[in-house]
Computed example of a mutant assay.
Amino acid sequence: MPTQFVHFPENQPLAMDAGVLLAPLTIAYQTYGTLNADKSNAVLICHALTGDQHVANIHPVTGKPGWWGTMVGPGRPIDTDRYFVICSNVVGGCMGTTGPTSLNPATGKAYGLDLPVVTIRDMVRAQAMLIDHLGIDQLFCVAGGSMGGMQVLQWAALYPERVFAAMPIAAAARHSSQNIAFHEVGRQAIMADPDWRGGRYIDQGIKPHKGLAVARMAAHITYLSDEALQRKFGRRYQDREAPTFSFDADFQVESYLRYQGSTFVERFDANSYLYVTRAMDYFDLAEDYGGVLANAFKGSRTRFCVTSFTSDWLFPTADSRAIVHALNASGASVSFVEIETDRGHDAFLLNVPELFATSRGFLEAAARARGIAPKVKSS
């Protein structure tokens, strides 16, 4: 399934929080399923930090299935036989949407760090431009986990009349100091790589693979839990019976992290990693509404389903409860589920039946309220 593109010309710029107008702008996106006659069944999927638009199709770079194939597809909770699913690559990304690898019309070279710093709000404004282009007035649902969940919350706050239902999963209304610190470690690893060249590595035909791999390794640890790591690896050696008394990857967990780092650099851009992590760092929804999160959702008619996981220490349940309390204070319609699992933050990407049941039930109830025709069962 080839990626689709929409190109916005100079006279249709993206107004960015950095105080600049970004133009021209390209948005790369994928769609699945069929838009119904009254355009009431559109679901926007917002991807997480290192995700992209390939949510439910074979990834053209890795050859692997889409990143949320457990949730999106025929017969899945977000059923593409019933809903028209849209997923776009975020601004600042590296899979076709305007980002640091894109051509800067002012120089004729890749933007690199000349691209204005991107925020979650910028990402959502660009998505709104895409939804306008597709002729859709109101989205049936906006859904996503982690950074995707931040975008869901931003959508509900910025365009409440355009979001019928919202599913933020394993997310928070602001990035914590600890998470900003983890991101800074990753960025410094990239910028310390001699091949980073001040962000101009593309012009010189090289890539800071080592720094980006280390950044990925550090981040990947935060996506798991101690219980999951212990269960999966323990202190077992990798292809050996005893330690080598060297700095080789003696332990299975070391080998696993090195593999994660080495495969990541083949599909992701180092400068994009700087941009999307910084976008998460700047996210603080309450700050835009007088420091009161409930004000972000005041008068909202959007239906919310907030989900967290017990072993997620990156975006712990307390973050989701803060969102729920704010929604309750604003009078919004909200349901909340904390799912017990030892699979950590990445649980939203994995086979977690409770997540599927929660999402399916919420969407079914919302579809009835929206008047979307039920799926016709085959005989």
Rank of each mutant, 00 (worst) to 15 (best):
D114C: 05
R125T: 11
I86H: 01
S102K: 11
N104F: 08
G75S: 11
G75T: 04
H59D: 15
G75W: 15
M95P: 06
Y111P: 00
T97C: 13
P116D: 05
V90A: 09
V117T: 09
V124T: 03
D122W: 03
P105F: 10
A106F: 12
N57K: 06
N57G: 11
V124G: 00
M123E: 02
M71P: 04
G96C: 13
D122N: 08
L103Y: 12
Y111A: 02
P105N: 08
D114V: 07
K64I: 11
P77T: 02
A128P: 01
V91E: 13
H59F: 09
T98W: 05
G66H: 04
T62H: 09
V90Q: 07
P100D: 06
G92F: 01
R125G: 06
G92D: 03
V117F: 02
T62G: 14
T97I: 10
W67L: 03
K109G: 08
I86Y: 01
T98N: 13
G96Y: 04
A56R: 00
V61Q: 12
C94W: 12
G99D: 05
T97F: 09
V90S: 07
R125A: 13
F84P: 00
R82C: 04
R82W: 00
L115A: 08
R82N: 05
T101I: 14
T80D: 01
G75A: 13
V61F: 14
Y111Q: 05
V91A: 14
M123Q: 09
K109R: 14
W67F: 10
T62F: 13
R76L: 05
R121G: 03
P105L: 07
P116R: 07
T80F: 03
T80K: 02
G69R: 06
A56C: 13
T62V: 12
R82E: 03
H59E: 10
P77H: 06
A128Y: 15
R82H: 03
N89V: 07
I86D: 01
P116T: 04
I78M: 10
P105H: 08
C87T: 02
T98K: 06
T119K: 01
L115R: 14
M95N: 09
T107K: 04
Y111I: 10
V85D: 00
G75P: 03
T101A: 08
N89M: 06
L113D: 07
G75V: 05
A110D: 04
N89Q: 10
R125L: 14
V90N: 09
P60Q: 05
G63W: 05
W68P: 01
Y83A: 05
V118L: 04
D81P: 02
R125E: 12
I120P: 00
G63P: 14
G99V: 07
W68L: 09
T98L: 12
C87H: 01
R76K: 15
V124M: 02
D81T: 12
A126P: 12
R121Q: 10
P60Y: 02
A56Q: 00
L115E: 01
W67Q: 04
A110R: 08
V91R: 06
D81I: 09
H59Q: 12
P77N: 10
P105C: 10
S88K: 07
G63S: 09
P65V: 11
C94V: 12
P60L: 09
G73E: 02
N89C: 14
W67E: 04
L103T: 15
R121M: 11
L103C: 13
W67G: 03
D122V: 02
